[in-house]
Design a protein around this nucleic acid. Structure first.
Lengths: 339, 339
DNA sequence: TGTCTCATCCAAAACGTTTTGGGCGTATAC
DNA sequence: GTATACGCCCAAAACGTTTTGGATGAGACA
């Protein structure tokens, strides 16, 4: 049972390959009678066009790519899955496929991007979790390949992106804790080369400064964005004297790790120690974690909309989108016990 | 800046396209001297092979596909993301890409599968969340296209799969609750056409029967696998008289929904009402939910290993894998209050 | 009768790669 | 001096599709 191609149909019907192709594509220069015959035979033979061949000819793949910057062996971060969900759903609706690969951040990363871009594997790319000096963005911006990013960079380049206003969010959250009476607020940052880590830390700093509170490097630590990593560095913060009365983590996962550590230490969350996170992933609600909500799923959809528009050659009416995260005050934050 | 192809290099170096191709591919029938020249020029011009063309010629795509059966508009189920993480990581390691699309279950689904298979879009497929009469499996089994499934079916077909022994797990969990003293155990099932729903419900039934407890249809309800759906039907169960003293949900998400409802009703989980789930997604641990753990991430990896082997034409040493889920007893289950 | 239009069809080129099946020298073996 | 072998190279075919640029013949119109 060999593959049935246009040629098969052409031979069986006696028409040329051209005519068969054009009949199936619905061109008007083939008579209704022959079209019917051809369609019938195609149906009967179970013809299905070879998409690779079509891609080669049309010079487009109807596919959008994303390369997940996985640290370690896995990307099972709810943040990734939410955004992929949004991207995938919207892409499906627009008639595109999603090609996912993974590549750890580092020197090999550029090769992965070239592979996709110059290999013509996809029509456009979505870049997530941007970094301050992001080589991926630098590379893509210098080609004219369509791409959108989730996040800004420090580079002096103009490119389409969606980003949350992490600084504003972080500022608001810190102010919230300050207004509750906290004076010594620990901060669990994300790796500092990540752009969002920078913004979120900035917001925290500015809020302290504006409240005339000192910025103490001792209470600022760096975690790897995982639950376990958050727990690790939270332990360090909790052993300081005087102990911070509140902790902010740069993402919910680390905040959850901190909560686990604090509980182990016999602290009641929201009373003995306030903890807040960032993102509002599903477990956050269950744990009553005060956090900053960003609509990750929605962002995924909008990223897809943008990349599809770019691929189609349209110009974006808005190529720089900045979303304000929403502060959700839950039980994990409360006034400090006075000493 | 036009695309640089083999032809570009051929013209620039004066060699033929064939020689250029073979030089870059490392064949031994081109002299080291010319190979060097060609490689140098390729490098200089920034040559990158067109993958679509290569695919067309080689008749393979080095891509594995998966079609997510999304109910409603989104697939942000932690279960999906875990398994995709496992699949993607392993695939990347084996040198394959992952092509993801989404398609709601229903009549249009087969077309999506034909699209991938007969369009030559991918070299193999992974099918997840199998159904009792699974048309996708029926279709794929009848072609000789490589695929593996996560889950069995009721169809009389032989195909490679990995599955958890949901019946055994569910049996063990139900026995656990019975041994704690529960007599009236509510069950929140998944949609009954899903194969795993069937097995899990079976385990519950058998455990009751073996303990000489009645199987009461009144306490068996059906949810849509989401948190909200679980909450909805849990409300129904909690309004029954006599009220069940324990609830089992066919997945953790619904169990979490049930917990929320029970708390609203002023019940203390693990004391006034025991609740157990299935899957052990990350929030389960945080919520101290008694559940059955299945290593979803690992299953994803193994699925990938199997499909890669099949694509390479190897025969699987084990084409039917059945994994026993592990019972994790946490604080959400305890003995009933005696009345 | 000759020209023009129009409907219908098709051969060939193109997309960029790999593979097939040699060709052409030069060196080795007899 | 003639076979044989081998190192190096290449033209052409192939993968399956779409597009380009006509070709053909019938009917309309002068």
């Amino acid at each position: 049972m060999a593959r049935v191609t246009l040629k098969t149909i052409a031979i069986k019907t006696g028409y040329s390959i051209t005519t068969v192709s054009r009949a199936l594509a619905g061109y008007s220069d083939v008579s209704p009678a022959t079209r019917e015959k051809i369609v019938a035979v195609a149906e009967e033979l179970g013809y299905y066009p070879n998409l690779t061949a079509r891609q080669l000819q049309k010079q487009r793949t109807d596919t959008v790519g994303i390369i997940l910057p996985t640290f370690g062996p896995r990307f099972a971060d709810p943040y990734f899955s939410e955004i992929i969900a949004g991207i995938g759903d919207e892409l499906a609706q627009q008639g595109y496929d999603l090609l996912i690969s993974t590549c750890p951040p580092g020197p090999g990363e550029l090769a992965a991007y070239r592979h996709k871009v110059e290999g013509g594997r996809v029509d456009g790319l979505i870049v997530i979790r941007t970094r301050r000096q992001d080589q991926r963005i630098a590379y893509l911006a210098q080609t004219s390949f369509p791409f959108v990013a989730f996040g800004r960079t420090d580079l002096d380049l103009d490119f389409p992106y969606i980003d949350e206003d992490g600084e504003a969010g972080s500022y608001e959250l810190t102010r919230h804790l300050i207004s509750l009476g906290h004076q010594r607020i620990g901060y669990i940052s994300a790796p500092p080369d990540l752009m969002f880590a920078h913004f979120r830390l900035q917001g925290y700093r500015h809020a302290l400064t504006d409240a005339k509170l000192p910025y103490d490097e001792q209470v600022v630590v760096y975690g790897d964005l995982t639950r376990r990593g958050g727990a690790q560095v939270a332990r360090r913060l909790l052993s300081l004297t005087p102990r911070p009365t509140a902790l902010i983590a740069a993402n919910d996962l680390m905040a959850l790790g901190a909560i686990a550590v604090a509980r182990e230490a016999g602290l009641e969350i929201g009373r003995d120690l306030s903890i807040a996170g960032f993102d509002d992933i599903p477990p956050a609600e269950i744990t009553s974690l005060t956090t900053l909500r960003q609509p990750i799923y929605e962002i995924g959809r909008r990223l897809s909309q943008m990349i599809c528009a770019l691929i189609r050659g349209q110009t974006l009416e808005q190529s720089h989108v900045l979303l304000k995260p929403k502060l959700l005050v839950r039980a994990s934050s409360g006034p400090p016990l006075h000493t």
